[in-house]
Nucleic acid binder design. Structure first.
Lengths: 182, 182
DNA sequence: ACCTGAACACCGTTCAAGT
DNA sequence: ACCTGAACACCGTTCAAGT
């Protein structure tokens, strides 16, 4: 990558991080380019889709979550390891307001720039879920897809301003459903 | 209302019902006016906000849900009455794709045209929940707001195409959390 | 009273023209 | 190679002008 191109790329990413934190995942891309002092076409070549931009912004977080799952997989209590990871996954996913709907769409769209991240998120959760199920700590009638769906539902809830005060409590209710054996 | 005004109103409502069913709650209002053969300003005067239009479209459904709660309140099994109503509430709310986020926003916004409908939905659910709690069929650590949030989460899940096949199963998981006693 | 549609200020996306 | 910004086709919302 040419030096000027790299500079634009970095600048776009930094500005996008701020704008998305401010306005959510559906922020104006025009606004991002404007604030970055870059032509609109430049943004589109570096990030051909909104998903590509979000993927670049969120990759670090996804990687951290996968690594966190590895650590937690070695803990004694498989049930609370699962719930702990779940809580962190919801928090991470929630941190970019509005991104969760795109992520859900991406899991069944191999062409999406977010696809790989979603698959690895689901895989990390599946590992912890299966272990908890094997040890009898989690209900046996669900799989990684269900877990991914419940994470997305909780992240969505935490994204709705009127529900924010109840988000923790709703997490308790739903996670209790996972831990209860069938 | 003048006869021509009433005709426009009815025509707008009929077209909006079709367009919203097709494109979801964020459908183009311009498109609605166009297809209704009516000026854009006419749509805006009859329905000053998107919420007002949706409210007109959904009022019947909300009324039916409230009435259904009355019926179910007289059934023997307070727990399954609650779950049955919950299932119907999710289905009703889901039927207008994308409306659920607006409804959640409306519950804490008295100025919204959807506010009253949301409050009555919550009230209907609360009646069934409290009865089930009194009889020991539902967990005691939640209230009508939590129930409303869970309905909205389930409706949101059912709105995401990749999750549709799992929607029923996710309903079972979450409703089991409500019925389990604490 | 009621209706219309132009006007304004925004989008996302593409692509010819520049350096 | 890379960048720019005009161009196109859309929005939501308002409001002067018409009947």
């Amino acid at each position: 990558m040419r030096a000027d191109a790299k500079k634009n790329y970095d600048q776009l990413l930094a500005v996008a991080r701020a704008v998305v934190a401010e306005q959510g995942a559906d922020a104006s891309l025009r606004d991002v380019a404007r604030r970055a002092g870059v032509g609109l076409g430049t943004l589109y070549r570096h990030f051909p889709t909104r998903e590509a931009l979000l993927e670049a912004l969120l990759r670090t977080n996804f990687d951290a979550l996968a690594q966190r799952a590895d650590e937690l997989e070695r803990s004694d209590d498989s049930g609370s390891a699962l719930v702990t990871w779940l809580r962190e996954a919801v928090a991470t996913t929630h941190n970019c307001s509005g991104a969760i709907a795109l992520m859900v769409a991406a899991i069944s769209d191999e062409g999406s720039a977010l696809h790989a991240s979603c698959v690895s998120l689901r895989a990390a959760g599946t590992r912890l879920l299966v272990r908890a199920q094997t040890k009898g700590a989690a209900r046996s009638d669900m799989d990684g897809n269900d877990l991914f769906a419940l994470i997305s539902a909780l992240a969505w809830l935490a994204d709705q301003p009127p529900l924010v005060p109840r988000a923790d409590h709703l997490f308790e209710i739903i996670s209790s459903a996972i831990l209860v054996k069938v």
